[in-house]
Amino acid sequence: MIESMARGIDNLRRDRNDLQEKVTDLQCRSMKMNLVFNGLEKEHPREDTEGKLREFLSIELGINAHVEFANVHRFGRYNRGRPRPIVARFIYQHDLNMVLESAYLLRGTPYGIHQQFPTAVEERRRSLYPVMRHHRQQGANVKMVRDRLYINGEQYDSDDWDDRYPEDTRDETALKEHFGYR
């Protein structure tokens, strides 16, 4: 009796995890054409967010081509000291790629551009950043796709971590300290 209940609970947990993965995948697909822009100042209730974004693209990135947006708006909680990020949904993939390819021009500025991902994916990505930085410093070819890290063409698996690094470097805080990140 208890064993069958335990199996039932395990099946329910597995089903729940499968559903969570499917929902996360659907969220990723729905956000595929979205970019988040940080640091665009002077937020006010009646601002022309799309116009502000077009001006930013022209001045900061030198993109004067007409970019088609489906929707542009600010999101997140209002915080007096900081402007909320702007999310823009692009209609055409080539427009999104053009903006992403120009994002390197923002290094050293208060601005930032990144793809939008669901919270669950952002958390997984955040845990992979220290590993990614370490391998980049070692000269490896590193690429992050959604929430998966590829090092020299092979998918990074945290289970392999045990064989390569000391035990105290497995959690993110210890990893940052071990490799000198802040």
Rank of each mutant, 00 (worst) to 15 (best):
A88N: 02
S127E: 04
R84N: 01
P118G: 07
M144G: 01
P45D: 12
I59G: 02
G81D: 12
E122F: 07
E50C: 06
P130D: 04
P130A: 08
T169I: 04
I86W: 08
L105K: 15
N71Y: 15
L149R: 07
D48A: 00
P166V: 14
Q137P: 02
R124F: 06
P118R: 02
Q27C: 10
V87K: 03
E123G: 00
L57E: 04
S127L: 13
D162N: 10
L96F: 08
A140P: 06
L106V: 09
R89V: 11
G62Y: 10
L40R: 04
E101F: 07
V131N: 01
N71S: 07
I91G: 01
S58Y: 10
G139F: 11
F90P: 01
Q116P: 07
Y92R: 15
Q138R: 10
F117I: 01
A120T: 15
M132D: 05
S127R: 11
S102V: 00
V87P: 01
P130M: 06
G62M: 11
R148L: 06
D95L: 03
E122T: 00
F37I: 04
D157I: 05
E47I: 05
F56C: 05
H94R: 15
Q137H: 13
L128P: 02
Q138N: 07
K32Q: 13
M98C: 02
T24F: 09
H44L: 05
N64L: 12
P130S: 08
Y104M: 07
D163E: 13
L53I: 03
M144R: 13
L106F: 15
F37N: 03
S58R: 10
N64S: 10
H44R: 13
A70R: 15
G76E: 03
P83V: 02
Q138T: 06
K32R: 14
G62V: 07
N152C: 03
H66K: 13
V67S: 04
D163C: 02
Q116W: 08
G81S: 14
H135C: 09
